[in-house]
């Protein structure tokens, strides 16, 4: 049955691969993160822990570098050699960028990570065999590996009651990463389908965007021209599927990290602004 399926769909599959993935997307979930508003408070990160059943690994494993932070706030300093910094830090919320041409996808030997018709990089936990090649090939280093089973250590009774039943608790040996809260997407899409309508912008959002106290994170569907996120992308003249943006106004703040690698990230950052005139 399945062999037949492969044979029949072989040419379609091949063309699909040549065209760089799906021809038609149902949605293109994307984000816009305004770095001028990011205050580095970690609310998004903790919200992610709460929503996505992330394991707390504890200090010993943290020291080894085995921590899980699907959403992490990176903090950088300017390199100038001053006695004191004269402005604040540079905060960067970093999570899976759901690349349109993701480098993690082609290298997985079992196709556990693949591109969905929503433009997301799916990670199918139960298919993953833990070769960890995807993580090695991720320029953003946002894939996290379950080096242990965390059932007892991370969720001692009754903490396991908090676990979100809408997504798996990953076992040892499985790679995981930010999914743009696919469980929320799934619920919203199911609901929309049952009500025979399209998913509305703002109907749901990711846990990080929902928590963000300064609303720095905007999540939405760039296929929906009316959505807030596509307005922002348009406003900042950031287009997809290019490795270099050609903007009419080059001063517009939108940019994508590691765009030059031609990975087509789905997260647009807005440059940090610092008022040096005060």
């Amino acid at each position: 049955m399945s062999l037949k399926n492969v044979m029949e769909n072989w040419s379609a599959y091949r063309k699909d691969a040549e065209a760089g993935g799906h021809h038609t997307y149902e949605h293109r979930w994307a984000m816009s993160i305004n770095l001028d508003l990011c205050i580095g408070c970690n609310a998004c990160s903790t919200a992610c822990y709460a929503e996505n059943n992330l394991a707390v690994v504890g200090p010993e494993r943290f020291a080894k570098g085995q921590a899980m932070h699907w959403m992490r706030i990176e903090r950088y300093w300017d390199v100038e050699d001053k006695e004191y910094p004269d402005q604040g830090a540079s905060f960067l919320p970093m999570m899976c960028q759901q690349c349109g041409a993701a480098t993690c996808e082609p290298v997985c030997p079992v196709a556990a990570t693949y591109h969905t018709p929503d433009g997301l990089n799916a990670q199918v936990y139960n298919r993953c065999i833990g070769s960890r090649y995807c993580s090695n090939n991720c320029p953003f280093r946002v894939r996290y590996f379950n080096f242990y089973s965390y059932y007892e250590s991370a969720w001692p009774e009754p903490m396991h009651l908090q676990l979100n039943p809408d997504l798996s608790v990953r076992d040892k040996g499985v790679m995981e990463k930010c999914t743009f809260c696919v469980q929320r997407i799934r619920v919203a899409k199911d609901k929309a389908k049952i009500e025979n309508r399209k998913v509305k912008d703002g109907e749901f959002t990711t846990a990080c965007a929902q928590a963000c106290p300064t609303s720095a994170i905007v999540f939405g569907d760039t296929m929906d021209p009316e959505s807030k996120v596509s307005m922002l992308w348009k406003q900042h003249q950031v287009t997809r599927a290019v490795y270099k943006q050609h903007k009419e106004d080059p001063e517009l703040r939108g940019y994508r990290i590691f765009e030059e690698l031609n990975v087509d990230p789905s997260v647009m950052y807005l440059e940090r602004v610092r008022d040096t005139t005060v």
Binding site: A122, V124, R127, S168, V182
Partner: peptide, 8 residues
């Protein structure tokens, strides 16, 4: 046929 439709 999308894996993520049924796998969570």
């Amino acid at each position: 046929g999308d894996c993520w439709k049924c796998h969570k």
